[in-house]
């Protein structure tokens, strides 16, 4: 067995149950800390798999370029609150597969926070973005959905509103509410909805108008240099 497979088994069979047990019983009701620990434990096997695969220079550099573009794009579009980063993550997943999509997402969140400031939400954001990129890779590379502008736009919007936004809202709920009940959760999600919808609309616009051109650019580089094509690489 590979090291990363063993790590996945250890994480799922030992670490996460133990964390949940101690989180609910030993340290009474610290949902935030428990949640954050589980998320970090989930991230570790992915990073170990990446590390254990001994990625080639090309793969490393391409992932780095995509992450840096995600962070830099925020500065280059002269509109406040217009963040194409998540669209770039999804498109990277679509072009280079689930594993690269995950890495681009997680590292974009982490590296971006070196400029925006790390916060209590950093691991949650890494998980949310990474999983988004990974899911895009699974769905569009396995051709479960066609790479059509409208479908990509809807996919981007739904991912923002249903997955990333609520996950980040959760980290806030756990920190801010003394009693977790449906009324509080509903109110927090409702308060977060405008931000999530604006993020979703922005992602959808980028996917609709620029999804195809960007994918073509990525595919062109992939074909031109024969990148990331080995079957076990993806």
């Amino acid at each position: 067995m590979k090291k990363s497979h063993i790590a996945i088994l250890i994480v799922f069979l030992i670490c996460i149950p133990l964390t949940l047990y101690f989180g609910t019983i030993a340290a009474r009701r610290s949902f935030y800390l428990t949640g954050t620990l589980v998320i970090i434990e989930l991230l570790v096997p992915f990073f170990m798999a990446f590390e254990g695969r001994k990625p080639q220079a090309r793969e490393l550099v391409i992932i780095a370029v995509l992450c840096a573009l995600g962070v830099a794009s925020r500065v280059l579009v002269p509109l406040p609150h217009f963040k194409p980063a998540f669209a770039i993550i999804l498109l990277s997943g679509m072009a280079f597969g689930p594993e690269s999509g995950f890495m681009v997402g997680a590292i974009t969140a982490f590296a971006g926070n070196f400029f925006m400031g790390q916060g209590p939400f950093t691991p949650w954001q890494m998980m949310a973005y990474g999983a988004g990129g990974m899911l895009a890779g699974f769905i569009f590379q396995k051709k479960l959905l066609p790479k059509k502008p409208l479908i990509m736009a809807i996919f981007g919007f739904v991912m923002c509103v249903v997955w990333i936004g609520p996950l980040l809202d959760c980290s806030q709920i756990f920190l801010m509410l003394s009693e977790i009940n449906w009324a509080g959760v509903a109110a927090s999600f409702a308060a977060g909805l405008p931000v999530n919808v604006s993020q979703g609309v922005c992602t959808a616009i980028v996917m609709f108008l620029f999804g195809r051109p960007i994918l073509e650019k990525l595919d062109r580089v992939k074909i031109k240099y024969g990148m990331m094509e080995d079957a076990d690489g993806i």
Partner: peptide, 14 residues
């Protein structure tokens, strides 16, 4: 604004 900005991002990507 959006298309201008994204055009820069696209060029930059290539």
């Amino acid at each position: 604004k959006i298309s201008g900005g994204m055009l820069v991002v696209g060029t930059l990507m290539s």
